[in-house]
Simulated scan of single mutants.
Amino acid sequence: MQPSTILIVDDDKDICEVTAALLQSEGYATLQANNGEAALDMLENSIDLIILDIMMPGDSGFAVCEKMRRVTTAPILYLSAKSLPTDKEIALNSGGDDYLTKPFIPVELLARVKAMLRRYHIYSKNQQRGKLNDEFIQIGGLAVHPTSGEVFLNNSPVFLRHKEYQLLSHLIQNRGSVFSVQYLYEALWSEPYLPSANNTVMVHIRNLRQKIETDPQHPKYILTVWGEGYQIV
């Protein structure tokens, strides 16, 4: 089996080398880029996962991530020395899937990489399977597996980023219940609720609706209960 290829984007060449050596020790193939422009050029290759810094010459990691999202669905893990909650919020809203601060613990980086690749390969390599079993929760044309990360809409696979899938899975497994923004944020992001978290949850709901609703402005799956939160009925 061909090893997964991971693109490391960081202007610190030492961090690139250390990260590459760690990933290669686990059997992954790696590519390195020291700025956003070089990284975007490398997306022509088969990239399974991207590790992205924020503070780089030229475009910031946030801007690079937004450009990457126009051409790839590969998971993006931010790896940055910036640790403010607002940095993480911007990172995830720009299209990132996860966020890890420097200096990082090698075992944690590897664990996150493995989990992200496992979810991604469900979509990129197993889409032809297309068979639903009794474990899927189905509502109309929407089918969600509660643990595997698989989502189908009218029998076609839907690629969701990790937090999007967690949010959808939680709502559909608790069909009929209304969950506040504060509850969803604290339960799924595992962080204390702050006012800025409202936007984080709303962005993920909006992205979900874009992917699973025929008319996102008039959703039939994820409903807004004004003044209370969100539910699937």
Rank of each mutant, 00 (worst) to 15 (best):
P3A: 06
S4N: 05
T5D: 00
I6M: 00
I6Q: 00
D14S: 10
A20S: 13
A21C: 12
L22Y: 01
L23H: 03
S25L: 08
G27S: 02
A29P: 00
A29K: 04
E37C: 05
D41H: 14
M42E: 05
L43F: 09
D48E: 04
D48H: 06
D53E: 05
P57I: 04
P57V: 02
D59I: 12
D59N: 11
G61P: 04
F62L: 15
V64F: 05
C65G: 07
V71S: 10
T72L: 00
T72P: 00
P75S: 10
Y78S: 04
S80Y: 12
A81V: 12
L84Q: 14
D87H: 13
D87T: 10
E89R: 12
I90W: 07
S94I: 06
G95Q: 06
L100Q: 07
P103C: 03
F104L: 06
I105E: 14
V107I: 10
L110S: 01
V113S: 00
K114G: 08
L117P: 01
Y123L: 05
R129Y: 14
R129V: 14
G130Y: 10
L132A: 04
L132N: 01
D134S: 14
F136P: 08
I139F: 03
L142D: 01
A143F: 08
H145Y: 02
P146W: 01
G149A: 03
E150V: 05
N155F: 13
F159H: 12
R161Q: 11
Q166W: 06
L168G: 03
Q173F: 03
R175F: 05
G176V: 07
V178I: 13
V178E: 03
Q182F: 06
Y183I: 11
L184Q: 14
Y185V: 05
S190V: 13
S190E: 14
S196T: 09
N198F: 09
T200W: 02
M202V: 11
V203Y: 06
R209W: 10
Q210R: 15
K211P: 10
D215F: 06
P219L: 12
P219F: 13
V225F: 12
E228Q: 14
I232Y: 08
V233E: 15
